[in-house]
């Protein structure tokens, strides 16, 4: 009971500190702004597709219309969130890194940490309090983005979300919380492990750059289908079976490319969210059971990354490290 009270006190302080921190407020506002911009841009892009469809339709004669089949662009509210997910992958991860860094940096080597550690605060209570505080902040942030996204998509597209779509969005928000908490724990562990605090922050940024932007980028640019604007196989008018048959001849190359991609936590989060939201068209309008049947390995790896980062944060939180002043 006493331990729970200590965890609660530490968590409460984390939340209060975050609310008072202008940098966190600026970054959170910036992210919300970007979510709004990305939904607006997606909506305008969709309107342009519809306009292009009608323009193409008006240019065809009734005879041509019998032989040429034009598919009207279909509106799926969840697909409007592609930009939102990409911003969460990049900016959301930065916010979580900042939170993790600040959670340790503001106390590391200070008199406050010495005062805290003379009290009966165990390593578990310390890490638990920090995690609970971070969870409250991140869940509030993710929920805020979720509510804002639903409102923006409904307002822009004039189409309400169905219950199934809301459930899928709820799941995506849960994955996002897990993804952000991974970066929080990772950054907090680095702030504890690296004696110099600014160096720990830059190290966290460097690793973020490598695992969130560079490795997925290499995988993307090595994709043969990405070598031509509009798609290599679409350019050759190849069917899905044809693509599979050809790509199977280049298994080693594809395996290497895939191995690069799966080494990044961001790619697992992206695969999981893109499938759930139907941004990857194979999974659009499919049931959650169908999606999870294919995507459970990505969920599992995301959980392994998260658990690994929590364990790392716990092991790093030795009193000697918390009390060591940054040189």
């Amino acid at each position: 009971m006493k331990r729970l009270r200590i965890i609660g006190i530490i968590a409460k302080k984390e939340v209060t500190d975050a609310l008072r921190n202008s940098l966190f407020a600026t970054l959170a506002f910036f992210l919300l702004l970007l979510v709004g911009v990305s939904i607006l841009v997606a909506s305008f892009a969709f309107q342009s597709q519809v306009a292009q469809y009608h323009a193409a339709l008006s240019q065809l004669s009734p005879d041509q219309l019998k032989s040429i089949v034009l598919t009207a662009p279909a509106y799926y509210p969840l697909q409007m969130l592609r930009g939102t997910i990409e911003y969460l992958e990049v900016i959301g991860a930065i916010i979580a890194l900042v939170l993790g860094y600040l959670a340790i940096a503001k106390e590391k080597g200070s008199n406050a940490s010495r005062l805290l550690l003379v009290r009966p605060v165990t390593r578990g209570s310390f890490v638990g309090g920090k995690l609970l505080g971070a969870s409250i902040i991140l869940i509030a942030l993710v929920l805020g983005i979720g509510v804002f996204s639903v409102a923006a998509v409904t307002f822009v597209g004039h189409v309400a979300f169905s219950a199934s779509e809301l459930m899928k969005l709820g799941l995506v928000l849960m994955y996002t919380y897990g993804y952000l908490l991974f970066f929080f724990c990772f950054s907090a562990a680095l702030a504890l492990l690296v004696p110099n605090l600014p160096r720990a922050l830059m190290l966290a940024f460097s690793l973020w750059l490598v695992f969130v932007l560079i490795i997925p980028q290499i995988g993307d640019t090595m994709d043969p289908d990405n070598q031509v604007p509009g798609g290599f196989f679409a350019h050759l008018h190849m069917t899905q079976d044809g693509q599979t048959a050809v790509i199977n001849q280049f298994r080693r190359y594809e395996n290497f490319r895939n191995a690069l991609e799966v080494s990044s936590v961001e790619k697992h989060y992206e695969r999981l969210t893109f499938a759930t939201l139907g941004i990857k068209t194979t999974y659009n309008d499919k049931s959650l059971g169908f999606i999870m049947h294919d995507k459970w390995p990505d969920l599992l790896v995301l959980l392994v990354f998260l658990m690994g980062s929590i364990v790392l944060a716990y092991l790093s939180a030795r009193p000697s490290r918390i009390m060591a002043a940054s040189p």
Partner: peptide
Amino acid sequence: GQNPVALLNPVT
């Protein structure tokens, strides 16, 4: 009107 990370693909 491209995706936020479009600039990271040289083909795009």
